[in-house]
Design a binder for these strands. Sequence first.
DNA 1: CCTGAAACATTATACTATTGCATTACCCCG
DNA 2: CGGGGTAATGCAATAGTATAATGTTTCAGG
Lengths: 170, 170
Amino acid sequence: MALARNSFPGPDHDHGRCLHDALGAAERLCAKRGVRITPARRRVLELVWQRHAPVGAYDILSEMQRDAEKDGKPGAKVAPPTVYRALDFLMEQGLVHKVESQNAYIGCSRPEGNHDCGFLICRECGAALEIEDDTLSALLGSLASRHGFEAQRSTVEIEGLCPSCRSEAR
Amino acid sequence: MALARNSFPGPDHDHGRCLHDALGAAERLCAKRGVRITPARRRVLELVWQRHAPVGAYDILSEMQRDAEKDGKPGAKVAPPTVYRALDFLMEQGLVHKVESQNAYIGCSRPEGNHDCGFLICRECGAALEIEDDTLSALLGSLASRHGFEAQRSTVEIEGLCPSCRSEAR
DNA sequence: CCTGAAACATTATACTATTGCATTACCCCG
DNA sequence: CGGGGTAATGCAATAGTATAATGTTTCAGG
């Protein structure tokens, strides 16, 4: 199985293909929407997808600074705004989500169409799984309107142990 | 109505009494548990309860620095760890929650007994309402176990417009 | 009293994010 | 194909959030 978009990735997960597919889908979406996926944005997206776990903005920044050095620009500095601007763009396009409880970012598993989603986040290994559930969305909406509140955006993050860390814990 | 623990506070909300009750409840709980509610902790709790909206750690810090100056200690400095230690204690005791999407803190409306809770947070005025709902907890648990995940702690934050900001918006 | 654990003070520093302004790249139109 | 406007970047500084490390004080219970 290459993709692991509806479960925590197992040992047979082909992440190279997973990453490739995510980038491909992003290119297609941007093309369809007429927005530009520039080299910096592409690289940030790639780094966000490096693991199935949230990645910090400054981790991305360090990688990009390393890139720049290798490209023969020893004094080259990539600055924080470069990363944050790319992340803002990717979030606007629904390609990346922010994990609020960690101030970190993760690639979106279902970038087509807007959606409210939640995350299951493993304390142990850091892996995070995006979950989308109509019942949950409906319930959140109903809780809000019960209090006269107009819901616009929701954050749902559940911290705990993923299946494989659970087995190891015994 | 003095307390506004299950709805957004209206214009008739008596916040003085609300604050007083919250502090009283905290004192009783700490006494019952045999933990110390020191002056610093009490002051931080009071500042967290100053509004029905999340308060930043550094806002609390500034207030406490102002306190210290007034108390005739012109060079007195309250440092960040003082505030963070108190917040950690208050969170352990379930007296304060962190609002992850804002890196800010808010007093807990139902400090007796542990609970998973969520927040409705107004974009406009910043007010936040703590909500607790068994159906929601159950659903989150079932979503987790559906993916073989062991849920330990959850963050639910819904951003939007509170009733009064909704009326004004027209 | 004495003492040990908890709480606190202080300094420094790490980590996360934004502002403002100058410059460059790209696309559309003429 | 060249000018002109918008989008994207580069760059420097700074704001905002949080913790590490170390030493000192406080205080309940023996």
